[in-house]
Amino acid sequence: MDVPGWLKPTSDCQLFIGLSASQATVLLSAKGKSIDRIVIPEQTASACFEPLQQLLVQHKFKRPDVTLVLADDCYQQAELDKPAVPDEEVAAALQWSVKELISIEPDNMQLDYYDMATAGTRKQVMVIAAEREWLKDWGHMLVSKLRGQLQQVLVEELSLLNLFSEDEVPTVLLWQKPGREVRLLLIHKQQLYLSRSLRGSANLENMASEILPSVIDSLSLEVQRALDYFESNLRQPPVKLVKLAVPEACRQLVQQHMSANLAVAVAPLDEETLADFNPTEDVAVLPLLAARMGQMTTAQSELEATEVEPTL
């Protein structure tokens, strides 16, 4: 039996929590605007409860909708052929196929997957697995103690798809969190065709000026290989744009060198892509902002749907 809408608890804010192996990064948002941002040097739900509660009390919020966004050190993944079973049975079939490739105990594995873009008739999936008990602890804390509603659990690279529209031209996004290697994502029609870390690219903003140009040349080569693979192997239309979400200290130099190396446009991720997005400060929390953008789009779509007059 459906619960009437007026009986359901309504949220007064949104919490977007980015979890990594060493910390939780929290974005508090309300009415589509960022309110506050904190970093908690903990990863467990119990250790994060009090700082989250204090954040809500400070801003006089009581009932958050919550989205968890997992960094790549919080889960394991494996690429597999898609089982030839009905869609509703795929996850269960993958549970057996992946047990030799992922070190999490089967009884403690929370598994999900997404279809990968491939050429020809072969179907493949990317399996994502996290520790079930760890996620259950977070769910219990958020719902039972913080009085929130857990809306969804995402991984960073899939959250970033919200930056792109269905009709956007094929695009490469180069994204770098502080201290990490540059991540290359090739996106077309809100689908992820390629995702990889580019070796030797950690801490671009701190590299010596005499070393950085050669590193950018190596990055350009990796981008070109991705463009060739997308067009030749996957038989997709040519990529038209490379967007940069890298630290401001090196962004202009990366853009200049890549523009000279590649036959496609290279440009920074623009501020208009996200509401109140500041590319100078927000590169590290880009997946959280992208997750918020996805929720805003969903909410707008639902609102528009309710305004459509039914037809007979």
Rank of each mutant, 00 (worst) to 15 (best):
L7W: 07
L7D: 05
L7F: 09
S22H: 13
L27P: 04
S29W: 08
K31H: 14
K33F: 02
V39G: 00
I40D: 05
S46H: 11
L52W: 08
H59Y: 15
K62E: 15
K62I: 15
R63E: 03
D65C: 09
L68Y: 12
E79M: 06
K82P: 01
V85H: 09
Q95F: 14
L101W: 05
P106G: 04
P106F: 02
D107V: 15
D112N: 13
T118R: 08
A119P: 01
K123Q: 13
Q124N: 10
V125H: 00
V127M: 05
E133L: 10
G139F: 03
G139H: 07
H140L: 11
L142Y: 11
Q151K: 10
V155R: 04
E156V: 00
L158F: 00
L160R: 00
L173V: 09
R183W: 13
K189S: 02
L192Y: 09
R199V: 09
L204E: 05
E205Q: 04
L212E: 11
P213F: 15
S218Q: 09
L219D: 05
S220R: 12
L221M: 15
A226F: 11
D228A: 04
F230Y: 03
N233M: 02
L234M: 13
K240A: 14
L244D: 03
C250R: 01
L253S: 12
Q255T: 01
H257K: 14
N261P: 06
V266W: 00
D276E: 14
A284L: 06
L289E: 06
L289A: 07
A291F: 02
M296Q: 14
T297R: 12
E309M: 05
